[in-house]
């Protein structure tokens, strides 16, 4: 699903965020990405989401080389990826339903289909009663679950999460991670960046560990 071949990322100013990173994550796999802050976790996710471009090396998504893909095609690649942010990035001027419906509206689904899929996603995350509510009234855990509903509503092939439990208490964090496991069980590839080592160790998934822009645990290279 994701393949990095000798990928380096140098930001303007000479800071090397990633250097010579290689790994391959199979389709349908789930893995954690850890490391101290500044180790390059966010950069790695941004490269996958095509927010940033690699400086050196090759990046393949679903077998396609996206290293030098044209800007015009980026949106279509992103539609196959569900992105979950630490601060959920919900739009506050519209209801939970409209927030979750956004990826489907963008992809041009017909009206009825949107209603069906959004309700299914909200149901799966236990948010059906919040459909008409505005995000400002939600608790942190609820907002994060709405963010997840938005990420999965388009049935992406790959879920990327950047510190999804950063603002949540341990109980809620465990629940969120369990949700990712459930999506992985139905065939979605999942990559979660987190520094919550205690929680990750409780779960039985491969771990990619970054330090100073380099992958340190060789064993996990082929997760």
């Amino acid at each position: 699903m994701i393949q990095f071949t000798n990928v380096s990322k140098r930001y303007p100013g000479g800071h090397d965020a990633l250097s010579n990173v290689s790994f391959h994550m199979e389709k349908g796999a789930m893995a954690f990405l850890t490391g101290h802050s500044g180790a390059g976790k966010s950069t790695l996710l941004k490269l996958i989401a095509l927010i940033d471009r690699t400086t050196r090396g090759q990046l393949f998504l679903d077998g396609e080389n996206v290293t030098r893909i044209s800007n015009r095609r980026i949106p279509y690649i992103r539609r196959k990826i569900g992105f979950i942010f630490q601060d959920h990035h919900l739009l506050f001027d519209r209801t939970v339903f409209d927030n979750v419906a956004l990826p489907l509206v963008i992809a041009g689904y017909p009206h009825q289909e949107i209603g069906k899929r959004v309700r299914a996603a909200l149901d799966k995350l236990g948010l059906l009663n919040k459909e008409r509510v505005y995000p400002i009234t939600l608790s942190g855990g609820e907002a994060q679950r709405v963010g997840i509903a938005r990420a999965v509503v388009n049935r992406p092939m790959l879920l990327l999460a950047d510190e999804p439990t950063g603002n949540l208490d341990p109980e809620l964090s465990r629940e969120i991670m369990k949700l990712f496991g459930l999506f992985n069980d139905v065939g979605v590839s999942v990559l979660v960046a987190s520094h919550d080592i205690a929680l990750i160790e409780q779960l039985d998934y491969p771990v990619l560990q970054l330090a100073h822009g380099k992958l340190v645990n060789e064993a996990a290279e082929y997760a």
Partner: peptide, 16 residues
């Protein structure tokens, strides 16, 4: 601005 960034991340084309 925020809305534009989020929709672009979710796969909105420039046209959208």
């Amino acid at each position: 601005r925020e809305e534009i960034i989020v929709t672009k991340l979710i796969g909105a084309t420039n046209g959208f």
